[in-house]
Simulated scan of single mutants.
Amino acid sequence: MAQEYPASEARPRRRGRKVLITLVVLLVFVAGLLVVADRVAVGVAERTIADRVQQEVAKQGAQSTEPEVEVAGVPFLTQVVDGRYQRISIKLRDVQAPVEGQAVRLSVLDVDARNVRASLDTLRTGQGDVVADTVNGTGTISYDSLAALLKRPGLTLGEQNGKLTVTGPTDILGQKITISGTADVIVADNGAVALKFNDLDAAGLPNLPLARTFLNNFAKSISIDVPLPELPFQLAVREVRPLPEGLAVTADAKNVPINSAG
């Protein structure tokens, strides 16, 4: 026979369960609001930084698509209170800037800012600096842009086995031939990218000293220092590598106001 409990004992237990359930639902609701508020705050910060970066890129006489900004780290609001952010990523596409009358194009410029400092007032008003301890940038220069600087119609540049390659037509001793070869790519002391073509050849080239002299002179004529457009965020070029999609440029800087690109 089941034991019966007085009604006066059952009701407090039911009330206790209801209070606990209500408290859990309330906590879930509040947590949801905090998550929403956190994501909204991230969106505001990302738009603020994107607007400032776009303005500064335009001041340099350059063009690009609208910057894509991502502020990493969850939760974001605790970073706001602290005024320090783990990482901010900025992507610029189709960056173009005139260099000595030519438009050098970076198809992509990825910027990774670490340990970023910004006050709440800066994010709220858009005034003031957002300073990063370190900034690393990787950009890609299209081979078409580089080929245009060589001023040799028909020349094409590319990559093979990690080397910069060149092919193109020319005339030698009244004969049309196709030249091909590779180049060394280094960062010059002035920050430009130096292209040194030193290994050219041509199928069917006559085995004559005059023909070889012509090839050597041709290699010298297309060996140039490519002046890069002024990179945003005070980035200084450290390395250049040929890739299938273009010439990859790696740059870095320290203690940089990332919302002041000049």
Rank of each mutant, 00 (worst) to 15 (best):
A41Y: 00
T134S: 13
A31M: 12
L23Q: 10
F197Q: 04
A118G: 09
R105V: 12
D171K: 14
I90H: 05
D121I: 11
L215N: 01
A31Y: 09
A37P: 08
A202Q: 02
R241A: 15
V111S: 05
Q175Y: 11
A148N: 13
K196S: 11
V166S: 00
V116M: 06
R238K: 14
V256N: 05
Q86Y: 09
L150N: 02
R84T: 11
T178Q: 13
R17A: 15
V237R: 03
L205T: 06
T22S: 15
G154N: 03
D189H: 09
L155M: 14
V74M: 07
D144G: 14
A132S: 09
L92A: 02
E70C: 01
E245I: 12
L92H: 04
E239S: 12
N190W: 13
V108W: 08
K59N: 11
A45D: 04
V193K: 03
R14S: 08
A31L: 15
N136C: 00
S221M: 10
V240H: 04
F218E: 01
R152C: 01
T250V: 10
R114H: 12
F197S: 04
Y85K: 08
L200K: 08
G162W: 06
V95A: 07
K91V: 13
Y143L: 11
I49G: 01
I172F: 13
I224G: 12
L120K: 13
L92K: 03
P12M: 08
V36I: 15
E68C: 08
A253L: 09
F76C: 03
V24Q: 00
V131S: 01
G246H: 02
S89A: 09
S142N: 12
L33Q: 10
L228T: 02
V130D: 02
A188P: 01
A148Q: 14
P98Y: 08
T213C: 01
V111D: 04
N115W: 06
D38F: 03
G126R: 05
I177W: 02
P232V: 03
K91F: 07
T134A: 13
I224P: 03
S142V: 13
T78I: 05
P229K: 06
P12L: 04
I222C: 05
V193S: 02
V25E: 09
T178C: 08
K254E: 15
G126M: 08
T170D: 07
L173S: 14
A7E: 15
G83S: 05
L26Y: 05
S221Q: 12
L157Y: 07
I141L: 13
D51C: 00
Q96S: 14
A188S: 12
F197E: 03
Q86W: 11
T125P: 04
T170H: 07
V249P: 01
G137H: 00
I177T: 07
A188E: 07
F197C: 07
A251W: 01
L77K: 00
I224Y: 03
V249W: 01
R14W: 15
S89F: 10
L215E: 03
P6Q: 14
L123S: 04
K163L: 14
K18V: 07
N198L: 04
A211E: 05
D38N: 05
G139D: 03
L235C: 06
S107A: 07
L195K: 00
V95L: 10
A219G: 15
G101L: 12
E66Q: 12
